[in-house]
Design a protein around this nucleic acid. Structure first.
Lengths: 240, 240
DNA sequence: TATGGCATCTTTACGATGTAAAGATAAGGA
DNA sequence: TCCTTATCTTTACATCGTAAAGATGCCATA
């Protein structure tokens, strides 16, 4: 509400107010002098996505508007339209980036695991850790209704995330999971794991686990609660 | 710019355009003639909440705006402000109603269960069933960031929901759960159950379980998938 | 090298929203 | 009867998303 907007709608710093003829600007967009802000940005699309990520993590989902992103990038409010079509487009592309970060974080966590038990716990722990480190991004990926999964980049990134999960469950059950057909037991195992971790994450981010955490022995963290849940779930598979 | 606004922002049907003196209106707000729409509505607060629920289930979360609710109720767009303060206020009161419906649905489902196994499954099944029957309401309760839990009605209704869950887990573990202190095992059991069911519901409503469902034997429904998950979880406690 | 097409970015405009503030209207107590 | 107050309407404004028209300069082609 009330958004002061202290710097005016369009805020490209060193732009002469009118009649910017091509004099007084370095010729041919020199990659060195970024401070001159050439008329044609040159990499606006990427700059907008980075600006959007900053706005998202700073102001939350509600603050992620087309105009705010444009302000953050220092261009006019309508500039994003040309690159993303509409807000759904920008948000979807940003979510795709989020999914890729997310997948990379889980993959690297799995790689670092040594024991079988560790490997089983690494993925869900990395899942929750990513969401805690990037709550805005996670909200963008799983809370917004404004995502267009028909966009190839988003579809592919989300699909890859799902495939990683399915493979992890397959490894845990020691039966490779086919790409096109699942038994009811396999489907239940995958859905259960995903539901549990996703639900835990959402409840945690929404502060709804506070009721539980504050009744636990003093100083118990969300990570410890998660670990207790996970261990009680997979304990049977890894006899101590 | 005259504001075309096809149905007029304020749409109380039989309102004389100017100078509505008290003649031509039934004296003293007669409870019989609802069609006359007395100036002072008499029960606007409840009417607005009912209108809001209709708008929510018809147009979804994005369609639930203060002005849309006012239109639906046939009053001016600023009328809700007096009763709810702002959009957060209205949305929070509606969410409280949702939590009460939600709790009642689960309680009645538990009452109808006969066997111990049935009783263990009744609650989560009713949970998901409510969300499927009232996706707007469920989204309002668990997806919106615009809820004010400091409001007594919402706080109480949500708290009651949590208490019901904790009791159900206590019954399942055959150890009554204290109101103020939990062991890590108890906390993990509660958080696990809630996370699983909540996560399943969110993924289902978001269509993210489609990838799994369509790989399952043809015709498998979400309810069957949920049942498979639940049974594999509590199977140990209920030897067939 | 000159020039025209076209991608890129800005300006302007419009309807929608939330919210504040002032005006209108009835209800109820003095 | 009159006045205070709660309730509802009108008006106003900043913000948002989006469309459309104008400005700018890159690049291929002549």
């Amino acid at each position: 509400m009330a958004k002061i907007n202290t710097k005016g709608e369009t805020a490209r710093s060193p732009r002469s107010p009118k009649k910017t003829s091509q004099a007084s600007r370095p010729a041919r967009r020199p990659a060195a002098a970024k401070t001159e802000t050439p008329y044609h940005h040159g990499a606006l699309r990427e700059a907008l996505l980075q600006a959007a990520e900053r706005v998202l993590e700073r102001d939350g989902l509600a603050g992620l508007t087309l105009r705010a992103v444009a302000r953050e990038a220092g261009v006019s409010h309508a500039a994003p339209t040309h690159h993303f079509g509409d807000l759904t487009g920008l948000v979807s592309e940003l979510a795709a980036i989020g999914f890729r970060q997310f997948n990379a974080a889980m993959a690297s966590a799995c790689d670092e695991a040594t024991s079988p038990l560790e490997r089983a716990l690494a993925r869900p722990k990395a899942y929750v850790a990513y969401a805690q480190a990037h709550p805005g991004m996670y909200g963008l990926m799983f809370r917004t209704e404004r995502l267009d999964y028909s966009r190839p980049s988003l579809h592919e990134a989300a699909e890859s995330s799902f495939a990683g999960l399915a493979n992890a469950i397959g490894a845990l059950r020691q039966e490779p999971i086919s790409g096109d057909a699942l038994t009811i037991e396999q489907g239940a195992a995958i859905a259960r794991a995903w539901s549990m971790v996703h639900g835990f994450t959402m409840l945690l981010l929404d502060g709804r686990l506070e009721d539980i955490l504050e009744r636990l022995p003093a100083g118990t963290t969300a990570e410890q609660l998660l670990e207790a849940i996970l261990k009680s779930t997979v304990a049977a598979k890894f006899p101590t």
